[in-house]
Write a protein that binds this DNA or RNA. Structure first.
Lengths: 201, 201
DNA sequence: GTCTATAACGGGATAGAC
DNA sequence: GTCTATCCCGTTATAGAC
């Protein structure tokens, strides 16, 4: 995901590198299918050395999940407080949401699929961030319905459909594919905000 | 999922029951997190007895995934060949798709999340069914755009967004929740076919 | 068709040297 | 901060009795 090159001999490794390597493996093979030795191999170190940086394999997973659920709350959600109508603010959020999904694609997939592998405490933290995000989106949809900008009949269901459509892109959106993420974002904003939410004008 | 009750002593078990029990466990904990003993325990038999019915744990997973990807192709896709416009046929497909998702909820989640645990042969089979399904939906969207019934600008992306929104319901749709699956289906058909695809009239 | 017993292996994690 | 060595436990799967 970044940094020079690991290959052989005695390497020096940062928590960042561990999280990046683990996320890629977890996303491809699944948390329980990946051993601590796999992660260490990927970094060119021994399994035991991981435990200098993290107390357990689950702590590595928790770091991945925390990052990918906190970042949207801290970086994307503030867009809903900007000036503009619910429609323009949600359009901005969709765009930023997709940008984040591209930037943190593997971490996002891990956070989505490996919730069950977290300790109850870590899972509760992650789910609380996720619910907070969903609630703010739903409230903005509701505001747009109240103001007459949107024509959707059930704001809560519309918010879920919108987020599921956005998040689903993580499974197939290929930055090197025939449609660039920017193009996909443009088309999606129009389909979701104008179409699905029924924005007037 | 069905059948009388397993509890203690020497039980008699069918492949159906094994698949049902395994699917529930795989969906909740993940394929690699569930041991063959867990599955056996759930059925009131010993781990070794499973191997009388299936050659391996992966064969059980493959049976789950096969079922949940073949059924939509065989039962839901034919709706696209019925009489009517692309819009009415896609509306029927969305409804049937959601019905299937509710009926096979746990199997669907397993089929979505544990693809990586399948052998290459089994995975290829499952993905081929899935691509076939997606292609037929996309072609119907395209037909509706050509006939002027839909107004979306990119039929392929619209089909992906539509399917991702439908499939996303598997993560949160609760048959005993405040909105019944029937109500969700009604709202979703209007949001997706009328809204997202931009059906006229 | 299920049982007991076990083979063969890999998992996460720790101790203590360097 | 990484190493070697090791512990202990759980895994899938098989053999053969009942």
């Amino acid at each position: 995901m970044s940094e020079p090159v690991p290959l052989s001999g005695r390497r020096r490794v940062t928590p960042e590198q561990i999280v990046d390597a683990a996320a890629a493996l977890f996303a491809r093979e699944g948390y329980h299918a990946v051993g601590t030795r796999h992660i260490a191999d990927e970094l060119g170190i021994r399994g035991a050395s991981l435990y200098h940086h993290y107390a357990s394999k689950e702590e590595i997973l928790a770091a991945i999940c925390r990052r990918v659920t906190l970042e949207p709350v801290e970086e994307t959600l503030p867009l809903l407080d900007d000036a503009g109508t619910p429609g323009t603010r949600l359009a901005a959020l969709c765009r930023a949401h997709l940008e984040h999904l591209v930037r943190r694609r593997v971490e996002f997939l891990v956070g989505l699929q490996e919730l069950a592998a977290l300790t109850p405490e870590h899972r509760a933290e992650v789910e609380s961030h996720r619910r907070h995000y969903q609630r703010r989106v739903r409230d903005t949809v509701t505001a747009g319905v109240r103001s007459g900008e949107f024509t959707v009949e059930d704001p809560a269901l519309a918010a879920l459909a919108l987020l599921d459509a956005l998040n689903g892109t993580a499974r197939w959106l290929d930055p090197a594919g025939s449609r660039s993420p920017d193009v996909v974002a443009d088309v999606y904003v129009r389909m979701l905000v104008d179409g699905l939410l029924g924005r007037r004008n």
